[in-house]
Write a protein that binds this DNA or RNA. Structure first.
Length: 475
RNA sequence: CGGGGCGUAGCGCAGUUGGCUAGCGCGCUUGGUUCGGGACCAAGAGGUCGUGGGUUCAAAUCCCGCCGCCCCGACCA
């Protein structure tokens, strides 16, 4: 029995060695919490980039790039922002063999450096809106790291926009959240709950933070994406002013929004099973693999000809891999593609050819025989059905593990034994939020947009509730 | 930073009451037979036993220091 990495649901960091590797830099300079994204894993990230870039273009956004180094003084301008980020910043103090006059921060996020440019670029209402996105790496020196979910350096995209009016900026914030929602739902097959963050959980420097909260297989919450409304807070400290339609000087209204490679962690933890990675077809860089049943030292030309024809037939619609390696047995390949999550495998051997059929094997275990003449239709059917069924399974899990609870004591008991989303009435006070956190480790993941129409009492203080919010343990 | 664990071949590990030439599985190389669910046989290659010091006739093994990694916790949009 081969002794390859055997993935276990409860230990997702062991999953899919082909995606990641922990970086062990040279012995003299080891750095904790770094990941190497191997080619297969980067291909997944490219799916994220490709899909989001499509949406960004449709909505008039452009990609740009800004420096990785941020002068320390930039970060210090916005009070909440610096308080939030200073503890986890990596700071460059030396360069060119000399101590720098002003330290440089390695960007933990780019609001400050980007806004310093925006203040030069924006002069008139005619310059607005500014709709820019950046694909970049950022660095946050976390105390404890977890592969994908909390790494020292990570890949993400961050959009930064300027608008003429508050209304327009607020709409932008929600529009981008909606784009993320569509992406994680339709491509990654991850159901999420959209909502607003509480004062204590929101982005350092934002007026409002919105988010998508997903539920992993262990029923813990994971924030899948965020979108922030800044109002004029950064505009005022970076002096981003424009002359409006009435010739008055005004500060811009701003937003920022981002999704990181954490979403790859979410993908893994949402769908994968003990056989390895499970990729929804639309998220798979290669959704279809053809495994011919070959024999060494024999004439395989008939089987290979058919496989090549199949590949040609399918390629216009899907990326297809034809695995004609002779050095591995078919069984080896079957297992390999299950481990790496390929959604659909086509098996073709001499026996099938005699009957004019092939075998379709889905990553979720469903197998069927298909006439060669119906291949394309059936492949498309199976892929779209698999996409749906993965989403549905995840949605059922989210639904079945989201509970309404009205008593603090039963809630404490329940969340002790069973993680999940708990919709609890909350008065809106920081004190009650903190009390729940202290006693249960659960925090308010979001104030969901979808509110149940009812009145109620805060689960802690029993004052009148502002509505039900989602409490959960999270990553 | 606290608590726990670990460091031996590319990967995963055994060996640790001091004792012989440091071993096993996977992977790798070569040859042959296989090939419809992780093939088998044979022959090979591959090691400063994390590091520095000490004890000893003798150290992967015992003692002390250092370094690094992992897990749990504190921290965290």
């Amino acid at each position: 029995m081969a002794d390859r990495i055997t993935p276990r649901k409860e230990d997702f960091s062991q999953w899919y060695a082909d995606i990641i590797q922990h970086a062990k830099l040279a012995d003299q300079a080891p750095v904790r919490g770094c990941l190497v994204l191997r080619p297969n894993g980067y291909a997944l990230w490219e799916v994220v980039q490709g899909e989001l870039n499509k949406k960004f273009k449709e909505t008039g956004h452009q990609n740009a790039y800004f420096p990785m180094f941020i002068p320390e003084s930039f970060l210090n301008l916005e009070k909440d922002h610096v308080e939030g980020f200073a503890p986890q910043c990596a700071v460059v103090t030396h360069g060119g063999g000399k101590k720098l006059e002003e330290a440089l921060i390695i960007r933990p996020t780019s609001e400050t450096i980007i806004n310093s440019m925006y203040s030069k670029w924006v002069k008139s209402y005619r310059d607005l809106p500014v709709l820019i996105n950046q694909w970049a790496n950022v660095c946050r020196w976390e105390m404890r790291t977890r592969p994908f979910l909390r790494t020292m350096e990570f890949l993400w995209q961050e959009g930064h926009t300027c608008h003429e009016t508050e209304d327009e900026a607020r709409k932008e914030t929600l529009k981008m959240l909606d784009i993320y929602l569509g992406f994680v739902r339709d491509v990654f097959a991850i159901p999420v709950i959209p909502g607003r963050k509480t004062e204590s959980e929101k982005f350092a420097g934002a007026e409002e933070t919105y988010c998508l909260e997903a539920m992993m297989q262990d029923k813990k919450a994971l924030q899948a994406a965020t979108s922030h409304y800044f109002g004029q807070r950064f505009a005022k400290v970076f002096d981003i002013k424009f002359q409006d339609r009435n010739s008055q000087m005004q500060y811009v209204y701003q937003t920022s929004w981002g999704i990181s490679w954490r979403i790859l962690g979410a993908l893994i933890m949402t769908h994968s099973d003990d056989q390895g990675l499970v990729l929804p077809p639309k998220a798979a860089p290669i959704p279809v693999v053809i495994v011919p049943i070959l024999q060494k030292n024999k004439d395989n030309s008939e089987v290979l000809n058919v496989c090549n024809k199949m590949k040609e037939e399918l390629m216009p619609h899907h990326r297809v891999l034809l695995d004609d390696r002779l050095e591995h047995s078919p069984g080896y390949k079957f297992n390999e593609y299950e481990l790496t999550g390929i959604p659909l495998r086509i098996e073709v051997g001499p026996r099938d050819l005699a009957n004019g059929i092939c075998v379709l094997a889905r990553r979720d275990g469903k197998k069927s025989q298909v006439k060669l003449s119906e291949l394309i239709v059936r492949v498309n059917e199976e892929l779209s059905d698999l996409q749906k069924s993965l989403y549905n399974a995840a949605y059922e899990r989210l639904k079945n593990n989201t509970h309404l609870e009205n008593s603090f004591s039963t809630f404490k008991e329940k969340i002790e034994s069973e993680s999940g989303f708990y919709q609890l009435h909350w008065c809106g006070s920081r004190a009650c939020e903190d009390k729940v956190k202290d006693e249960t480790k659960a925090t308010i993941r979001c104030i969901p947009f979808a509110q149940i129409r009812e009145t109620g009492k805060c689960i802690v203080c029993e004052k009148e509730s502002t509505g039900r919010v989602i409490f959960a343990k999270n990553y």
